[in-house]
Amino acid sequence: MDKAVSTDKLTKRFGDFVATNEITFDVAQGEIFGFLGANGAGKTTAIRMLCGLLKPTSGSATIAGFDVYRQTEQIKQVIGYMSQRFSLYEDLTVRENIRFYGGIYGLPKTELRRKADEIIQTLELGTVADKLVASLPLGWKQRLAFSVALVHDPRIVFLDEPTGGVDPITRRQFWDMIYEAANRGTTIFVTTHYMDEAEYCNRVSIMVDGRIKALDTPAAMKQAFGVDSMDGVFQILARGTSTK
């Protein structure tokens, strides 16, 4: 079975609050999957369960075939993660960050060196390879953070609002990188508040109050709701009832 993510009635309760309520969906290997929802809809809780960081209350889920209850260490080996708040160490250099993360994932020394050279070359960071990450422009950091999240060749990478705050050209260069990674077979699981980015996904789900209220290709969703943009779909679906 070639599923990067597969869930069945996955649920998380905090006391009497149901953060994620019986969500059931699959993501195919190599797919770009947009995981949308209003603030507080339950996206972060769902992602934490999928990454093996939070035990579900009920239901089941596998990531690249590994069980989220029992095989969390295996899951961590096959996923990459990047959030808007950088996962990079500001007071390490570009090269040190790559080697640090590669080291954590147990890449051998020669492989580490090769990866570092490859990333630095691909991102054209040659002139700043030994500069502190703190000194880089935001857009460069974001692209580096993405490459670092892929340093151990994960099957699936989780991107949590990866493009917040960057300029429109950098935002698109970032999506170029996402397309390239997907084209090489990496599954992309991405959240965003930019509705134009929802259009770049193969399929999109929209969460409202802990449930998945719609899941389809952007084109099919727009057609189903009779609107011409994903923003239109989102405005109809995501209003929800939550006033937490």
Binding site: G37, A38, N39, A41, E161, G165, H193
Partner: peptide
């Protein structure tokens, strides 16, 4: 509105 969803932004 940074980091705020599209509905709340509107």
């Amino acid at each position: 509105t940074t980091g705020v969803d599209a509905v709340s932004r509107k």
